[in-house]
Measured scan of single mutants.
Amino acid sequence: MATGGRRGAAAAPLLVAVAALLLGAAGHLYPGEVCPGMDIRNNLTRLHELENCSVIEGHLQILLMFKTRPEDFRDLSFPKLIMITDYLLLFRVYGLESLKDLFPNLTVIRGSRLFFNYALVIFEMVHLKELGLYNLMNITRGSVRIEKNNELCYLATIDWSRILDSVEDNYIVLNKDDNEECGDICPGTAKGKTNCPATVINGQFVERCWTHSHCQKVCPTICKSHGCTAEGLCCHSECLGNCSQPDDPTKCVACRNFYLDGRCVETCPPPYYHFQDWRCVNFSFCQDLHHKCKNSRRQGCHQYVIHNNKCIPECPSGYTMNSSNLLCTPCLGPCPKVCHLLEGEKTIDSVTSAQELRGCTVINGSLIINIRGGNNLAAELEANLGLIEEISGYLKIRRSYALVSLSFFRKLRLIRGETLEIGNYSFYALDNQNLRQLWDWSKHNLTITQGKLFFHYNPKLCLSEIHKMEEVSGTKGRQERNDIALKTNGDQASCENELLKFSYIRTSFDKI
């Protein structure tokens, strides 16, 4: 039985969820670079991206490699990797027998973001014989899940209580170790020597080791999670996991709180800001991140802002960003909400898709409305799209047979046209069989910064309504002859009103 693990408890099935942008060198404390989270699957090609990484700022997932063999891993080693800020997950990587050479110096898994409450997941690794993470000293947050690894031993010899604050939620089941077939031998045991430290858990006094050649490092209890030197002297209180010299914040392997210019500090002093819960960055760093993602459509890219001495992905609820200094300031009234469309555009074809934009005031991208039916549609669209004030790209209304009016965009005031449909149009209306009105132009103002209007096959939309939009939106004169079809717009509506004058002759039985 794995020490510190839980057996036999019912657990939810383990679901495996399925960018080499360097964020800056980590400095003297770390020998390499800070790398983003990685999802490495199918083959070993991307694994080489770990070569210079000291910190993975995010998670590391290595999974679904069915053609790899043990010899493929023999020359692979990433000794610079010290810390993973989120979680480490391995799933069905064939041929991998140990992690001792792959990650010989991995010391800390912070667990800032977890995989279903777990910071370390080893699942269905069919050839893994031992973990071998002999320098792993601290899992700051989260638990361990090690399950269905039929060859995995050296679990009962690990004292997880020396690595985690609590072992109650560890789930370590259905491994070879369960069948008591392992016969784990710690260093020196074969020669009758006791080389590794022994600890007591559940009444068992057991030597602690990761492999037959690597003991588990056990520091004096007084050192807590700070770690200790090879001689057993406690590291500085700002260290986490390990250090090369005692009581020196510049000799830590990793930091308990924050890293700044080669030393570990309790908090980031001005003019620095907390970033990702582990390091200090200056304003320029946060500003660069903001600008890199301002026009990016890459998933996970955030326009970072500053709030409460932190550089964070977005302002919290009730705050909006001051564009001059990136500071989050309290909103006066309802907060603006910028919604970034991942692929640059979004099609609204149902109430469900409209709900995804609920509360958005600025759309960074283009909207395509293609709704053919739905219950209580006008009210639903207004509830979900009615706060949109600005669209950076274009607005396209296409084959939306259920629409009679666009009044559900009740606050839309600006279409920038930074991206144009077919390279020309910022407003595009095609084949809307029941569209009769755009907006009530006596109450609604709309500016279209650039781009043209396109109207074709809107049989109940009168040309007068379209011409009014040209005047109000500032697009009059931009359109070419064929942009607004004269014969297919309003051709099934009563669009022309003329005053009919009647004269009559009164007659009676005795007068003409």
Rank of each mutant, 00 (worst) to 15 (best):
D39C: 15
T140I: 09
A254V: 13
I84C: 01
K193S: 05
R263W: 15
H48L: 13
T107H: 10
C335T: 06
H290W: 08
S317I: 08
I163P: 00
Q287W: 14
C335S: 06
T250R: 08
E207A: 03
C264I: 00
F275S: 03
S317F: 13
P270N: 12
R92F: 07
P104E: 02
S143T: 09
V305T: 08
N149Q: 04
R145K: 13
N135H: 07
D177Q: 01
F78K: 03
G227V: 12
R41V: 05
V305G: 07
I56D: 00
L60F: 02
E124F: 04
H127T: 11
D261G: 12
G333W: 04
C252D: 00
F205K: 10
Y273I: 02
F115L: 11
D184I: 05
I158H: 08
K129Q: 11
C335E: 05
D247Y: 14
N257M: 03
P316Q: 06
P70V: 15
K100M: 09
K310S: 09
N202A: 09
F123I: 15
M38F: 02
V218C: 11
C328T: 03
G142V: 01
A190D: 14
T140K: 14
C219A: 08
S284P: 01
L155T: 15
S77E: 07
P187D: 07
N149E: 00
P31N: 15
T211G: 02
K217P: 13
C153Q: 08
K310N: 11
T45P: 14
D39N: 15
N150T: 09
L102P: 01
C255T: 00
G95A: 11
D288W: 05
V121K: 00
C293Q: 01
G232F: 04
N175G: 12
S213H: 11
C228I: 03
G333I: 03
L44F: 11
D159F: 00
K191I: 14
D184V: 13
L88N: 01
P316H: 04
Q287K: 04
I122S: 05
H307Y: 08
C209E: 05
N325Q: 10
K310H: 07
L88V: 07
L120P: 00
P336M: 04
T45H: 11
K310C: 08
M38Y: 09
Y134S: 12
S77K: 08
E97D: 04
C228G: 00
F103Y: 01
E238H: 11
C228N: 05
L81M: 13
D159W: 15
P31A: 03
L50A: 06
K217G: 12
K80M: 09
H290L: 07
T157C: 08
P249A: 12
D169C: 05
S284R: 13
C228K: 03
K217Y: 06
S225M: 06
V265S: 05
C315W: 03
I122C: 07
V93L: 15
P334W: 05
N242A: 10
K191F: 13
C239D: 00
K67D: 08
P271T: 12
S323L: 11
S77Q: 12
N257P: 00
Q303T: 11
P220D: 14
E51K: 01
G262C: 03
N150H: 07
I163N: 01
Y319F: 14
K217C: 02
E168Y: 03
S161W: 04
E151I: 01
N179Y: 07
E130P: 01
E181T: 08
P104L: 01
Q204C: 02
G262T: 11
Q287I: 13
G58C: 01
H59P: 08
G37I: 04
V144G: 02
N309I: 03
R141W: 10
Y273L: 05
N135Y: 03
N325S: 15
L260Q: 01
F66H: 08
A190G: 09
R256P: 02
Y259L: 04
C53K: 00
N170E: 05
V305I: 06
Y154H: 13
V121I: 07
C234Q: 02
G37Y: 06
D261K: 11
H236Q: 02
Q276D: 15
L90F: 09
Q61L: 10
T189R: 10
N117S: 10
R279E: 02
K67W: 09
V34Q: 04
N42P: 03
L152M: 08
C234K: 04
N282R: 15
H307A: 03
D184F: 15
Y154T: 08
G37H: 05
V144I: 12
K129E: 14
V167M: 01
Y273M: 14
K67A: 07
Y272S: 11
G37V: 15
C301Q: 06
N105Q: 10
D288Y: 09
T250N: 10
